[in-house]
Design a binder for these strands. Structure first.
Length: 399
RNA sequence: GUGGGUGUAGUUCAGCCUGGCAGAACACUUGACUGUGGCUCAAGAUGUCGCGGGUUCAAAUCCCGUCACCCACCCCA
């Protein structure tokens, strides 16, 4: 027997109904906030992700699905932001549309070892706002993320907020971190010792208890690495969030694993998720458009993991039980009645009445049981007697 | 890439420790005055015990290998 490839899942009708509802809620809210849908290809040039995510990130080095073809290397997209920036530039949207707000829903691919909340094909639902840098825009994006959670019925999450500063600040921060950690690094776990040279920010994020304790001791003073503009920008954002009564937790140790993030970053985590506890995350990427060959254009975005939303117990989107039931089940008994029933079935449907009939030649009793399982309101019985008298029986299943 | 756990009916699982006829519940089929559902009762069908090898008179059970899934590390949404 064939099996779905490792880390992929079939979404069967019962669950599919839930997915549609999540997507519908998303579309409704995105539209309220003025975001328009963008659909980009699932395959992209491998270089796009090397340039945007960073050639030395885990995602690019180890998790890409590479498709060699026609002497070129395509990859299944591991995320959407790079594709959307590519589309923005390729279609000259900075000239045609200027500041643009996009939303997207679709599958992403990373060749990881599957576990709870982590698949090789997973689905993102997210937004990108390209062409403006204003703390109010950051606040809108954050507000949009929390609005979605509210609409999904998800509570009990944590909203973590931090700033990485502008690209120059990031560099400075990395230097400071290395300096502070230099004499201590031998006390950290082997992973962290690796991170020291590779991605020093991640040491702040280590789950190892010993490392955490050491990190707690390190006092990180924003003023040491953030420039004045970044500091006041972040302060403005916090003021706006406070004023709008949006709750957040300042998390100085929150760093992102992808190279393109700058400035405002955030992550939404939830205890229902297990080890992979990020429900969604995002932030500014003010240097990415230029990195991909455009002008210096600022941008911000975030994405939720659909599979992770579905892991939250408080999620209250309708499931199959609340689906609109089939209205009528048509029972026929014997081949002659079936012919007439088939015409009747079409007439019912043309009149907008959902209706089904039996194709398994079951007994009357079995057909009624089927009708009951389907939860129909009415059953039409068309048997030999009815056929002779040119009549039929309409049975109200509820009363 | 590294570690731990689990693979038995359509589904959820028991049985494994201590080897001896393959089990339960739910679901399914049929029947209970011939053509009337739900509730109840009765009867019935359903298996490569993940796969391969070994030990044994005898293996779902013990041993070795292998594959798959789940969880965790790493990394990320």
């Amino acid at each position: 027997m064939f099996k779905a490839p490792r880390g992929t899942k079939d979404i069967l009708p019962e669950e599919s109904y839930k997915w549609q509802n999540i997507e519908n809620i998303g579309r409704k809210i995105f539209s309220l906030y003025g975001y328009q849908e963008i659909r980009t290809p699932v395959i992209e040039d491998i270089e796009l992700f090397k340039r945007s995510l960073g050639a030395h990130t885990e995602v690019v080095e180890k998790q890409m699905f590479v498709i060699p073809r026609d002497e070129e290397n395509y990859v299944l997209r591991p995320e959407a932001t790079a594709s959307i920036v590519r589309a923005y530039l390729e279609n000259s949207l900075e000239n045609k549309a200027g500041f643009s707000k996009f939303f997207y829903i679709g599958p992403m691919f990373r060749a990881e070892r599957p576990q709870k909340g982590r698949l090789r094909q997973f689905h993102h639902l997210g937004v990108e706002a390209i062409g403006a840098k204003d703390p109010y825009l950051d606040a809108e994006v954050i507000n949009l993320a929390t609005k979605l959670l509210l609409e999904f019925g998800i509570d009990g999450y944590e909203f973590k907020l931090n700033t990485l500063g502008c690209p120059e600040d990031k560099k400075k921060f990395a230097e400071i971190l290395r300096k502070v950690l230099k004499n201590e690094i031998n006390h950290f776990c082997p992973d962290c010792q690796n991170r020291y040279t590779r991605n020093v920010f991640r040491i702040l994020d280590c789950k190892n208890e010993a490392c955490r304790a050491l990190i707690q001791k390190i006092k990180i003073d924003y003023k040491e690495y953030l420039c004045k503009d970044c500091l006041s920008y972040f302060q403005d954002l916090k003021n706006i969030l406070d004023f709008s009564k949006i709750k957040y937790i300042i998390t100085p140790h929150l760093v992102r694993g992808l190279d393109y993030y700058t400035g405002t970053v955030f992550e939404i985590s939830h205890p229902d998720l297990g080890s992979q506890d990020a429900l969604g995350a995002g932030g500014r990427y003010d240097g990415l458009i230029k990195e991909l060959g455009g002008k210096e254009i600022p941008a911000i975005g975030f994405a939720f993991g659909m599979e992770r939303l579905l892991l939250v117990k408080s999620l209250k989107v309708e499931s199959l039980k609340e689906r609109p039931n089939l209205n009528t089940y048509l029972i026929t008994l014997g081949q002659k009645t079936k012919a007439k029933g088939f015409i009747l079935l079409d007439q019912m449907r043309s009149a907008g009445i959902s209706c089904e009939m039996d194709y398994e030649n079951k007994s009357l009793k079995a057909q009624l049981r089927k009708a009951n399982d389907l939860g129909v309101d009415f059953v039409i019985i068309l048997g030999e007697d009815e056929l002779k008298k040119d009549t039929l029986i309409l049975k109200n299943m509820v009363s």
